[in-house]
Design a protein around this nucleic acid. Structure first.
Lengths: 354, 354
DNA sequence: CTGTTAGCGCATTCAA
DNA sequence: TTGAATGCGCTAACAG
């Protein structure tokens, strides 16, 4: 049985997968040598000739290493977890694109978890990802302030961390966890200044779900800056709703029934803004002639709508890349907090007033 | 050392993760019993009292099972892989939403792979997912006809399959692999009929990348049906381009320079249609007054644009759910081929003509 | 019903 | 440089 023989067909592995020891046997070397030849981690201590032989055998047998077994043996995996509220939402899917890209660069696989805005499922997923022993977990949704589950979530996160996992999230800096800030507060302030500068004085606010950090940050910073500028948002012109198209639609409907209609409405996300514009249209109120509209995010898919939507550009893909880089950074170092830069983009939906 | 004692703090696992044997010791039972108590797979053969004790110990120690070790021991994982061309594209992210939902129902984690339309990376990802030993791989992008890599991709897929993996894809039925058809051909034919019925006779076609099944299916069926109806698309009014907003933009620019401008332009995706509308706008050509536009997909985020975009609604989330169900179906059964139903949605971008 | 034991596929230490 | 042996965390026969 000369090991170098290669005429016959590859043996049919009845059990399905080919194992390293089969490769070793086929190559006529020991299991250890085969292991070293195939991944050569660290010290490459295997004679070229043997290495060739092993690689050839692996190729012939269509050997594919078993990442699970490697994980058990090595004590760590090559996967990270990504938790989003709604992968169908362009905001999150764009972040996801950045995450997969960066993870790819580092040779990591990405496990995707979609919570559908359910804190309970977010909790479950942290456990699931812990269970999968992912090297790091990225929490892309804004924190929810639901005290109920927040505490349990924190517990799950801590359990994961104390087991050696790294956590990174998108949002304002918090202790013990690396963060990438989306620059929401500053962006919202800038937008407030811009609208004020354009001449708007009576402003409406579709504030989104106030339990969510992202929405609240944007809404609060916006309102605060306006107050500083001497044009505070009237309480009856602030409406909370869900972070969706329908949330924007319903919110706008309510705003349009106010005794004094706002001159401009700021929706805390582009998706909501689109809903708001639809509501105005359905109500026979012209945008921007009768009511101007502004959003937040600068979703790519929405850059071509008419009238062009004034918004705050958030570099979502960059956020995804950065948060992944943090998640994969040396666990030894200090907890890092990065941020990106948002920028107001003025388009036709908010023409200069008076 | 009474096992029931519980006063002290949970032992600090210096190595990070808590193992099953630690739980067993803490509970004063054997490793096997702990294993049975915690997952009770199949026959639940453990006395309630002991079970309680084990569960309590696990809780106290914050034990989280190691899915990798379980995978090695059991011989299979509880994860599936999803390969998409571009997760930031609403088409794919919505399919992904359906996939995660269904996978979740079955207790499977989802590994996301984003190819960025690169066939080479698609190939790599199939290997990576094979390497991760995912139970099934879902190929969500349309097949590419690039002979070069197509052959290698098929080889990788076959290697994965012969190792026991299941493959399911979105697209027209092909051998050896479960498929869910997006009803592209029928949808495109219906749209052709609809536009013809509205009075359009000179039609333009933004055909997308002809190397991709999805785009080609839509374009071909559309053109063919129009030919049958006696209104064939003029060759100079067919332009191939990328499956993106910019592809639609550039394509439309070219169409607008034709000696005889088309009455209506069908872009094989909504995203392209939006680009096309932008191009018309930038060229000072009114939509739909001077040129009508139709798309395909009925992307949710684009349902509120003005003028409302006539399109073909594709139930992407349903596709995601179904293809996942197929991927997770009993591997023993015959290869299944499902399909979903698309439907033409007429909006303002294609008003009746003459 | 419970414990003992033998792997699962692979990495790695320790000798040779 | 190479091989034999050990162990990773867990499941699954196999005996009691």
């Amino acid at each position: 049985m000369s090991p170098t023989r290669s005429g016959g067909r590859a043996p049919r592995a009845t059990s399905g997968a080919v194992t390293l020891s089969e490769v070793a046997r086929e190559a006529g070397v020991s299991l250890a040598t085969a292991s070293r030849a195939i991944n050569g981690s660290g010290t490459r201590t295997v004679r070229p000739e043997l290495r060739e032989r092993v690689l050839a055998a692996a190729e012939r047998l269509r050997y594919v290493p078993d990442a699970n077994a490697q994980a058990v043996a090595r004590g760590h995996t090559s996967a990270i977890g990504l938790v989003v509220h709604d992968i169908a939402d362009p905001y999150f899917s764009t972040i996801a694109a950045g995450v997969t890209e960066e993870a790819d660069r580092h040779g990591f696989a990405v496990m995707l978890a979609n919570t559908h805005h359910d804190p309970e499922r977010e909790l479950d997923f942290v456990r699931t990802l812990h269970n999968q022993r992912v090297r790091a977990i990225i929490l892309a949704g804004g924190r929810q302030d639901d005290e109920e589950t927040a505490v349990r979530l924190r517990a799950a996160v801590e359990a994961y961390q104390s087991a050696g996992g790294t956590v990174a999230m998108v949002g304002p800096p918090v202790l013990e966890v690396a963060t990438v800030d989306g620059d929401n507060a500053r962006g919202a302030r800038s937008l407030a200044e811009t609208l004020h500068g354009l001449g708007y004085r009576r402003l409406g606010l579709l504030a989104g779900p106030q339990g969510q950090t992202t929405a609240r940050e944007r809404a609060q910073a916006f309102a605060q800056r306006l107050a500083e500028l001497g044009a505070p948002v009237a309480p009856e012109l602030v409406v909370a709703s869900s972070f969706t198209r329908d949330g924007g639609y319903e919110g706008m409907r309510r705003l349009l029934t106010a005794e004094q209609r706002p001159e401009v409405v700021f929706a805390v996300s582009d998706v909501m803004a689109v809903g708001a514009m639809a509501a105005a249209r359905d109500a026979g109120v012209a945008v921007p002639a009768e009511v101007a509209v502004a959003g937040f995010d600068d979703i790519v898919t929405l850059r071509d709508i008419t009238p062009g939507l004034t918004t705050v550009r958030v570099p979502m893909e960059e956020i995804g890349r950065k948060v992944t880089a943090l998640a994969l950074a040396d666990p030894g170092g200090p907890v890092q907090h990065l941020s990106v830069t948002s920028a107001v983009v003025v388009r036709d939906s908010t023409p200069p007033r008076r």
